Amino acid sequence: MFFQHSPQLWAQHPTLVAGVLYAEGVAGNPGADLPLAELVGMARRRLDGTTEAAFPEIQAWRRTFARMGLAPTRYRCAAESLLRRLRTSGDLPRVHPLVDLGNAVSAAYAVPVGIFDVDRCGGGIEVRQARGDERYLTFGGVEEHPEPGEVIFTDSAGRAHARRWTNRQSGWSAVRDDTRTVLVVVEAMHQAADRNVPAMLDALAAGLRHGWGVSAHTSVLAPSEPRFEA
């Protein structure tokens, strides 16, 4: 299993800080309570008296989306969508324990977190600009084709596992009840990203260790070391 960003993306987005976590043996429900309330509490405290749009983490992704030609208030990064949901409804949706952990960490740090079922990723993922012939599967089971030049997560079979970079994941590799091995991707653009991304990887690894009793492999990528392999 590998994960990497294309050289073009590193060149076009020099403030990118990307973290990757790989873990095996995460099938089934956790054997201990996950720190969801603590993490969501962190997000609630940050939102007290303000909105997610004021966070530097969210502003950095809005600028990135604008540079890609996407309207930032129409296409939001996943972290902004979660924080908006938390602010307006008071809580985060419960989906699956692994996804719930990723969402809670994402909300606490206001940084997008993607969780992928490794067995459904075709051996590896590259984040790159789309040709336009790749296939994206919605959670409703509908196939789409990304726009040429759109940033996607793609495998060697031409399946797009995320569209518009950190906007929307795909049904191809979504976490399911039988998911055993996961690849978790954390991507940030703001000034403190070099501190926040490692902290997020630590929080995710601690949650997996506490809940499932597994050890995770983590790495922070850079243009000089852009590829993660497990």
Rank of each mutant, 00 (worst) to 15 (best):
G124M: 05
P97D: 12
T138V: 03
R87E: 14
G123Q: 11
D100C: 13
R168W: 00
V111P: 00
V95N: 11
R85T: 15
T64M: 00
D155L: 10
Y109W: 15
T166Q: 14
R85Q: 14
L86I: 07
A107F: 01
A130C: 08
Q129R: 14
S106V: 06
I125N: 01
L92F: 10
G141L: 12
Y75H: 13
A78W: 01
V113M: 11
G124P: 03
D119W: 07
E150Q: 15
G158N: 07
M68S: 08
L137I: 02
D155H: 07
D119E: 15
V118D: 09
G102H: 08
P72M: 07
R62H: 08
T138Q: 03
C121F: 04
G149I: 06
Y136T: 05
A130R: 06
F65R: 06
F153D: 11
L82N: 12
F153Q: 09
A157G: 15
V95L: 12
I152P: 08
A79F: 05
F65A: 10
R67T: 11
V111S: 04
G149K: 04
P72D: 07
G140V: 02
W61C: 03
D119C: 10
G102N: 13
R87C: 01
G123L: 08
W165F: 15
T73G: 03
P72H: 04
P148C: 11
P72G: 04
E147R: 15
T154E: 15
A79V: 03
R131S: 14
R63N: 05
T73E: 15
V105L: 11
D91H: 09
L70Y: 14
R120W: 04
A78V: 01
R85S: 08
C121N: 06
I115E: 06
R63H: 08
A71R: 13
D155K: 05
S156H: 13
R67I: 00
R63Q: 12
T154D: 11
R67A: 14
V113N: 10
R87A: 15
Q129D: 00
Y136R: 05
H145I: 03
V151E: 09
A110R: 02
T166F: 03
R128D: 08
G122R: 04
E80G: 01
A110M: 02
E80Y: 00
E150S: 14
P93W: 05
S106H: 03
S81Y: 01
R85G: 01
A110P: 01
G90S: 07
D91G: 06
